[in-house]
């Protein structure tokens, strides 16, 4: 496969994921399933992933909407968290209509230009919403604010992985920004083995009740 063709295929994948993300926001797709699709598309061959994502979009657009939770609308923000088992085990995560995770929206909300190859590639990665490890989080903060407005967010869940310094450091400025916007938020920390899953569910339920 040529580099040009590879860039094209991954741009298609990112576009499909963006579309699926909008279906999550429209409540036509559960976040739990969306998280699994993102991970699946990362581990199977790109051509197969694109075929599958396209079929999924067609199916969702042609089918009658499921009865997904109507309110409140939550945004999930965090770093390198990819354990979909948490979303599977805690049904309250289906109140999510958008995310700001390293392996989530931040990983597909950009396009690589096909004309300038490596320069275009580098520029696309430098200009996309940065992960917590990068310098200057103002672009990430602006991205969160924009998502709150675009997806009509009622509350934000900050999900940190314990012992990840860059991840949890950014929580404080995010919390301050949310206070300024008068958006309620819930700060939760977990471990890679999800040892506090039950506690997360209890706190998330209480948070949803509080903002409902």
């Amino acid at each position: 496969m040529t580099l040009s063709n590879s860039i094209k295929l991954y741009n298609i994948k990112r576009a499909f994921l963006q579309k699926l993300s909008s279906l999550v926001s429209e409540r036509k797709l559960e976040y739990q399933e969306f998280a699994k699709l993102i991970l699946l598309a990362d581990i199977i061959p790109i051509e197969t992933a694109n075929e599958y994502l396209e079929l999924k979009i067609e199916h969702l657009e042609s089918s009658i909407s499921k009865s997904l939770p109507d309110t409140p609308r939550l945004l999930l923000t965090g770093g390198m968290f990819d354990s979909y088992r948490l979303f599977e085990a805690v049904p309250e995560f289906n109140y999510l209509v958008a995310d700001d995770l390293s392996f989530g929206t931040r990983n597909f909300n950009f396009t690589v230009p096909q004309s300038r190859f490596l320069e275009g590639y580098a520029k696309a990665y430098l200009e996309r919403t940065p992960d917590p490890t990068a310098f200057d989080m103002s672009k990430r903060l602006n991205g969160i604010k924009s998502q709150i407005k675009h997806h009509r967010i009622d509350g934000v869940v900050l999900l940190g992985v314990k012992w990840c310094d860059p991840d949890t450091f950014e929580f404080v400025p995010i919390q301050n920004a949310l206070k300024d916007l008068d958006i309620p938020y819930l700060n939760i920390e977990t471990t890679p083995d999800l040892s506090n899953q039950q506690q997360i569910q209890t706190r998330l339920t209480a948070f949803i009740e509080m903002i409902s």
Binding site: D165, V172, E189
Partner: peptide, 12 residues
């Protein structure tokens, strides 16, 4: 008490 995780660098 100001929101920083107890697992962050203790110098910080």
């Amino acid at each position: 008490a100001h929101g920083y995780s107890a697992d962050l660098c203790a110098y910080a």
